[in-house]
Design a protein around this nucleic acid. Sequence first.
DNA 1: GTTAGCACTCCATTAAGTTAAGTGCTAAAA
DNA 2: TTTTAGCACTTAACTTAATGGAGTGCTAAC
Lengths: 347, 347
Amino acid sequence: MITLTERQSLILKAIVRDYTEGGNPVGSKSLVQELPIKVSSATIRNEMAHLEALGLIVKTHLSSGRIPSIKGYRYYVDHILKPEKVDSKDLKVIQHSLGGEFHKIDEIVAQSADILSQLTSYTTFTLRPELKHSRLSGFRLVPLGNHQVMAILVTNNGDVENQTFTIPNDLTGDELEPVVRFIDDQLIGLPLQDVLAKLQQEIPLKLSHYLQNPDGFLDIFGSVLSKAASERFYVGGKLNLFDYTTKQNPQEMRSLYSLLDQTDNLANVIGSPGQHIQVRIGNEITNDLLKDYSLITATYDVDQHGQGIIAVLGPTAMPYSRTIGLMGAFQRELARKLLEYYRYFDE
Amino acid sequence: MITLTERQSLILKAIVRDYTEGGNPVGSKSLVQELPIKVSSATIRNEMAHLEALGLIVKTHLSSGRIPSIKGYRYYVDHILKPEKVDSKDLKVIQHSLGGEFHKIDEIVAQSADILSQLTSYTTFTLRPELKHSRLSGFRLVPLGNHQVMAILVTNNGDVENQTFTIPNDLTGDELEPVVRFIDDQLIGLPLQDVLAKLQQEIPLKLSHYLQNPDGFLDIFGSVLSKAASERFYVGGKLNLFDYTTKQNPQEMRSLYSLLDQTDNLANVIGSPGQHIQVRIGNEITNDLLKDYSLITATYDVDQHGQGIIAVLGPTAMPYSRTIGLMGAFQRELARKLLEYYRYFDE
DNA sequence: GTTAGCACTCCATTAAGTTAAGTGCTAAAA
DNA sequence: TTTTAGCACTTAACTTAATGGAGTGCTAAC
C-alpha cells in the first residue's frame, strides 16, 4: 500500500493535470512555477525520483520530463481525484436532450450515448436496463396478405418488438388464432426470462394439442421473444476516435474502429452492472486493442426495473475529474427519465 | 478529341496497369521490358513526352516516372479498358450470397452492398428500386395496450413498414376502425406516390366525416407512409476506407469517414438511376472530399418494378477493368433475384 | 532537509552528402 | 523520318553529422 506525503501528492496531481492538458512530459522547472509550495527545482527532482521509484511516474527517455504511469493514474483516480461538479451549461444540455418525447426506451438510451459522447468528445456506450425482468404483456400475430404475418410482442414497459415472417406452408392464419389465445392466457404477466425457459419445456408439449406441427409457430414466437429479451448496446461518438486515438498506422486504426461495431465483444469488455463507477486504465482493460486507453463504466439504477450501464472510452490521459463528474450527472438524469417512462406504462 | 496511335495506347495502358498494381510511378525502362514492342527506352521516352503533352500522364517531380492523370484515367476507361470477365469463383460468391432466403427487399439490397465491398475491397453503396411505383396493399392499426398502437403499412411487393405510436389523447381505438376501413377502401392499389399526394389534399377533408380532429391520425398515417416511400441507402465496407485512403491526417480521415454516414449527402453525390455504368474520376465527383477517389455507379433494372443503383467508391488508381466486370455481374444477379422476389409477392 | 551548480543524456531539427531512378536532349545510326 | 546510344542533369529518399534545448542525477555546500 502506497502512501504519499502531502507534497508528493500535490506533485503527482500536477503532473497528471499538466500532461492531460498539454500532452507533453512535465519537467521539474515548470512544476516549481505552478505549485503552491516554495521549493527549488532540485527538491522537486528529488521528490520526482521518489515517485518514480514507486512506479507512479515514468520517463519517456533517460533525460526527459515525467508522465504518469498506469499505476500513477490509478493512484490519482483512487486517492486524489475529486469528481468535478457539473457545469450548469452541461447539465442543461443533458436535461434538454432527455426532455423530449420518446417512443421507446431504446431511443432514450441510444440518445444518451450520443449526448454523452458530445459532452466528453470521447466514445460512449450505453446499455438499457436489463430486459429479463420485463414481463410479457401481449402477443399478436397480424396477417399481412398472402404470404406474410407480423408477430408483435409487447412488454409491461411499453417495449414493442416485432418481426415479419413468411408464413410456413403448413400453417394458416385460422389455425393460429387459438394458439395466440393460448399464449396470452398462459404466459402474460411472466418475466421474459421465464417465458424463454418455458419455451424449451412445457410450451411445445402443450402446443401439440392445437397444432400438428408446432415447429413453424415456435420458430416465430421464439425468434421475436429472444430478440425482445436480448441485451441492446448503443455506441456514440465513434468518429471521436479519430481525435483521441494514439494509433498512427491505418491498419491499427481499422481494427480498433471495427471493434466498435462488434457489440458482443464490447459488451464482454464492459461487463455487467456492478459498482457505482469503475475506472479501468490501460492494460486493466481486458482487450489488447484498448490497452492504451481508459474505460470508465457507471451503473445506473432504475429501482425495481433493473440496472443499466453507461461507459466512456477515451485516452489514458483524460480529464478524469470532469468525465466522472459528467457521468455522475448523466447517471442520475437518465435514471430519473427512465423511471418516469416506466411509470407511464406500468400502471 | 484525342487520338492515340496503337503504340501510345499500349504505353498508356501499361502505365495505368503498372501504377494501379504497384503504386509507383512508371519509368521508361520498366516499360520496355514488359511491352510487346521492340523499341528502346529512348523511343518510349519520346512517346511518353507526347502523352504528357496531351495531359494524359504526369510526373510527380521533374525527373520522376509517370503516373496517369485524371484525364489519362478517363481516356483509359473510355477507350482502352475492357470489362474483365468475372472469375467463376467470384460469381459463385455472388450467387451464393443472394441465394439465401430473405424476408425483405432491403435485406437483399443491404447484403449486396456488403458482398460487393468484400469482393472489391472498397466501399460500396446500394439503393433499392424506387418505391414510388409500389402500390399500397394494406394498412392496419393494431392496439397494443393502454397507450400504444402500431401502424402497419404493406405494399404489393411485400414491403412492410411499421411504427409504434403513443396514442393521442383525443383518439380511441374504436373511433379508428372506420377510418382504417376508409383508407383500405379508397387507397389500396394506388402507387404510394399518389397516396402521398392525396394525403395533402382530399384525405383530410374526407376524414373529417369520421373524426372530429383528424390530425392525430393523419400524423400517424403520414409518418408511416413517408417512411415507406423514402429512399433507402445502404453502405458496405466502410472499414475498407482505412485501406485505400490517401489521407494521412486523422482529421481529414474523420471528415471523409463521417461522409459515409450522411446518407442524404451521399445520395446526392451518387445521383439518380441513369446510364448503365458510369465512371467518375477524381474531381469529376461533385464532392470535394472525394476528389482523390473514383466512383463507379451502375443502374440495375427490375422491369416494371423500377431501377436501383449499386456504386463503388475506391482510389483513382483502381483496377477498373476488374471492378467494372464485377459490377456488371452483380447488376445482373441482383436484378434477377429481385425480380424473383417481386414475382413471389405480386401475384 | 534543501539548494546551487554542473556534467551528462537524449530528442529534435537542420545541414550536407550519397545513391538510385528517371528524364530530356543531342548526335549518330537505321 | 524514326530510332537509338549516350550523357548531363534533376529529384526523392536515405544516411550521417552537427547543434541547441530541455531535463535529469549527483555532489557539495547551506
